[in-house]
Design a protein around this nucleic acid. Sequence first.
RNA 1: GGAGAGGUGGCAGAGUGGUCUAAUGCGCACGCUUGGAAAGCGUGUGUAGGGAAACCUACCGGGGGUUCGAAUCCCUCCCUCUCCGCCA
Length: 422
Amino acid sequence: MLDPKLLRESPELVRAAIDKKHLDADVDAVLSLDTAWRSLITEVEHLRSTQKSANAAMAALPKGSPGFVAKVQEMKTVSAAVKEKDALLKQAEERWHDALLTLPNLPHESVPEGKTPAENQVIFEHGTPPAANPTAVAHWEIPGFEKLYDFGRGAKVTGAGFPFFIGEGARLVRSLLNFFLNENAKAGYVEVSPPIFVNAASATATGQLPDKEGQMYETLDKLYAVPTAEVPLTNFYRDEILDESLLPISRCAYTPCFRREAGSYGKDVRGLNRLHQFDKVELLKWVHPSTSYDELDKLRGDAENLLQKLELPYRVLLMCGGDMGFAQAKKFDLEVWAAGQKRWLEVSSCSNFEAFQARRAQIRFRSQATGKPELVHTLNGSGLAVPRVLAAILENNLQADGRVKVPAVLIPYFGQEFVNFN
RNA sequence: GGAGAGGUGGCAGAGUGGUCUAAUGCGCACGCUUGGAAAGCGUGUGUAGGGAAACCUACCGGGGGUUCGAAUCCCUCCCUCUCCGCCA
């Protein structure tokens, strides 16, 4: 959510942001709702003030006295007016608030212009260049793949996109998770194991509701299966005022992530590329506004470190205005090279939301300079998403003998040097 | 799941229809006092919104209702605690 004051005082900045992100939002409509709301709140507060002073006067009068009775009659009119105007005010406030939520965050000045993914800037590449391994196959074509990653039975038991991970397949997943969590702990992220269902208030604070409820699985109790650990983690400090000395706070969490993502089929979603349930470790920071871009670079570096240690070729994209998302001020994507599919797979998206998320979730700190609460900046990124990293390992490290070489750094976790598919 | 008791400011805790913008205590900040400190004394101490400002308004777990007027009465939901039942 944007600062209403910013909108009032500098609507041109908001218009520029909408243009840069190639979104469609009506600033003037929001402004006129803002004006309408403000005029109503003034009116209601004036009526309330009348009521309050009458109340004080009536307290001093004897209960049944003529003056008292006359005052009751007089105040009935005011009371009715308050009721009526207050209903209008609530309506106006809701409309204004809803409209405000349609305005995107302002992109940082360092975000490049652009509309499509083609205009994202590749700012870093690491590892063997693409096409170095012409004999590689897509991971789902590895002989014996279904023995370790059973999509057929997953579909029977639950549905498409819910595979079973079996034997060495399951152990490789667990090895990756432990590796990620341990490395992140070394980098200063405190491990958290959060609830994997959240209530509507939490899903609203991080922006999944009201518009994206179709993307989440929902229970009878109106709880939502988390699409990412970002949701419970960010909401941890919802409606709180933190001590400034605690910042920056860095945490990480492993959760399964649940995404309905209805209606997408084809090559992009085959195998481990896109699942309804997948494992991910999320990195999250609550930081002082003055340090958030330094912290973003560090967070991205922490995620990159994982890929480097796994010896996977990857690249870093600085997302352009049109491809960066609604709430982000700046975003980097980390993409790993999958040699068999001969394509880049997104395994982490590292973003600075500045105060956009914190305002909606009301996460603040008490500034020692002013003594007043100020909004924190929130950042997050994957560190990392398991299935696509797994896909890349399988495709890049496949041997001529049909086994997959386990990255050296994972061997202590996995307990052996190769994954066997027979 | 059943029965009962509760939810008030940073904390403790009063208030059960009318100057409650919530007593009192603790804590915290500043001042006086002191060689210095403690004690003592004094002043102040929430969040949000509107307004150029003076100032005004809202907030006593959430939502709704009754009333001229609600922290206080009614309905409803959530949460906490105690006891019972069940359970990895």
